[in-house]
Simulated scan of single mutants.
Amino acid sequence: MAHDIVFFLAPDDESAAATRRQGPGPAFESVTCRFIEPDSAIAEWDMYFEEPAAELPPIEQLLAWPWPEWVTAPLNDGVEVFALPPRLIRAVLADATSVELEELADRWTARLRSADGDEMTDDDLLAVLQAVSRLAASAVTTGSGLYSWSF
């Protein structure tokens, strides 16, 4: 099942965990998109930058990839808060080139389309990645973390 998701900056895991009940809100710099599974998106991005390739790897490779860590324990209410891996934030997304972001957006679109068909997000995935990349650069500059909140 897909989620509404907010990628946001927070000073630390404790601050990110505090968003669990009502979401990040306007107090946190963020970007919002809809109908995306946050954990698989983060794993897809991490896999792309670790093993760059324009072609879509098999789903088994994605499922075997290390997934992001929970910031709060999962409950049955549908809310998820994940921390993006520091290597993905600092070494990759913050320094991603426009060509890398375009290639990743194409690959990510292909993954979503293969899983969700016509039900995939209407968001411009390249614009989402560009916004997340700007957040990652800000995280590096401010020493913050980059998180996802979804419902």
Rank of each mutant, 00 (worst) to 15 (best):
A137I: 00
D46V: 00
E102F: 08
G143Y: 05
A91D: 14
V132M: 07
E100H: 10
F28P: 01
L125V: 06
S114H: 04
E69Q: 15
T19A: 08
D12K: 03
V79N: 00
W149V: 08
F35T: 14
A91G: 15
A27V: 12
R111Q: 11
R134P: 00
R134I: 05
P26I: 13
I89H: 03
S30W: 01
E102W: 09
E80K: 09
R107P: 05
S114W: 02
P68T: 02
S30L: 10
F49L: 08
P24D: 01
Y147K: 04
Q130W: 01
L75Q: 12
I36C: 03
A115P: 00
D4C: 04
V140Q: 04
L88S: 07
P74Q: 06
R34Q: 13
R20V: 13
S133P: 11
P58C: 10
D95K: 13
A137T: 04
E80W: 11
D13W: 00
E69A: 15
V31W: 09
A2Q: 07
S148N: 07
A18N: 06
W108F: 15
P74E: 14
A54K: 08
H3G: 01
A83S: 15
A53I: 00
P58W: 02
A10C: 06
G78C: 10
A2I: 09
S144I: 01
P68H: 12
E119A: 13
P11C: 05
L135A: 11
F8P: 06
G23M: 12
L101V: 10
D122C: 08
L62E: 04
G25W: 10
V71S: 01
V31I: 10
L112P: 03
E103Y: 00
G23P: 09
L84F: 08
T32Q: 14
A110D: 14
D4Y: 07
V6K: 05
I89L: 08
V140D: 00
F151V: 12
E29H: 14
A54D: 13
V140I: 02
F82S: 03
E55V: 12
D4T: 13
A43C: 02
E44L: 15
M1P: 09
Y48A: 05
A105H: 04
L101G: 06
A18Y: 00
C33D: 03
I36K: 01
E119M: 11
E55S: 14
E55Y: 11
R87P: 12
F151K: 12
V140A: 03
A64E: 09
A10W: 01
T19M: 09
D122K: 15
M1R: 10
L56A: 02
D13H: 06
D116T: 11
E29G: 02
I5C: 08
F82H: 10
L135P: 07
S15D: 14
S150F: 04
E69S: 15
P11Q: 12
V140S: 06
E100F: 02
A43N: 01
E55D: 11
T141S: 13
